[in-house]
Design a protein around this nucleic acid. Sequence first.
DNA 1: TGTACATCAGTGAACGCGCGTTCACTGATGTAC
DNA 2: TGTACATCAGTGAACGCGCGTTCACTGATGTAC
Lengths: 221, 221
Amino acid sequence: MEQRRKRTTYHHGDLRAALVEAGVELARTGGPHAVVLREVARVVGVAPNSAYGHFATLGALKRAVAQKALREMGGAMLARLARFEEPADPAEAAKAYLREVGRAYVRFALDEPGLFATAMGGDPAGTKTPGFVEDTADPSYEDRPKPDTVVLDALSRLTEAGYTTPGTVQAAVMACWATVHGLSTILLDLQPNLPEAERDAAVDSALDVLILGLTTSRRQP
Amino acid sequence: MEQRRKRTTYHHGDLRAALVEAGVELARTGGPHAVVLREVARVVGVAPNSAYGHFATLGALKRAVAQKALREMGGAMLARLARFEEPADPAEAAKAYLREVGRAYVRFALDEPGLFATAMGGDPAGTKTPGFVEDTADPSYEDRPKPDTVVLDALSRLTEAGYTTPGTVQAAVMACWATVHGLSTILLDLQPNLPEAERDAAVDSALDVLILGLTTSRRQP
DNA sequence: TGTACATCAGTGAACGCGCGTTCACTGATGTAC
DNA sequence: TGTACATCAGTGAACGCGCGTTCACTGATGTAC
């Protein structure tokens, strides 16, 4: 809590980025609630008010932190998916890929609960911030999609495999998202003490139901 | 914020219940974050420290409030379900009932976002409270199940209708819960501005996928 | 190459706030005789 | 029925805390000549 970096130069160099980065680390440990202006400044080793040169308000800083957390989640999912070996059969591959995307989503939530809550937490009582550019074009974002992009990608593969028609993708997205997001928040907030084995079984069986529902024709045979 | 009730007697009568009730009302309006000891006391019209006669700590009060919110959710779901007209065919009835349970869950979340967040919010930084009975046997709770009981009930009806085998109920619970809870949190936190029509469509199609997945045999035909 | 000066980036001190919790207390209540 | 007194339930004032934000400032930087 009182770790602070030494600094030799008077000018920092890139204080804005340092503030956001410190905010992300605080969020990682303690969730969005832990992103507190004075603590962020303390970690960076800078006066409490120096953030006002770069952010109009704490809310603006928190929004930047949330953006970064969201991208870190997308990046983590992508990294895991890169290691995924696809089945030969394209239909099976599409299903297995979607399952893996679901697992990756939940895994990030469980591994990084603070960042997950920060990324997903709604607008954290932040007000509008006129005068400051909100969605900074951070070059480090480019290889890191938002998680919903990853989910969408998996669904379009399912469509290509002939399972869902393009018209129903919209609906399928919500079903997928609800399942993985629901699993994540339930396991984190409501069932935090579930043994690991049961947890994994719950995730897999919920994904079973999801994929079965997505790949079964709407008209019963 | 500064509404306070007048009180004629020095002794309150049932201050404990009044504090919890005031807490629930604050949670209804502003979520768990709004349940603040001094504000609760203010609303009841009592000294800020008087709560310590009934709760060891703010955390204990918040936990009581969360319990009550959870029961209010269960009650609201039950009230809606009582108005539900079942199809004649028992298999269809079981499916339609589950769908209605899902709708009731999400509806409560959308209608009472503050209470929903309070009921579902994990342990809100509250510590253990030795010396105080935690799960008070409040008689007003008896007709109000917890929401998960309602979901479980719907699933056992599905089992009776021959859709799921008793062994897979555990798994089915998680799939259901994830869908309805995920829908709720997504629509509240991540997509708060979705038009009502699209929102309802999203809920229904996600429930479609869920029910289809639950009622389709695991082995593809 | 060296100096003057405008601009920039971070500082130091202070503000007012609402919070949870503590302490010693006092007014009201109910029971015993 | 009336009084004494122990118990109970809420009080008043204060504590120390960390917060977001403001103000006038000063040290460092870069550009013009």
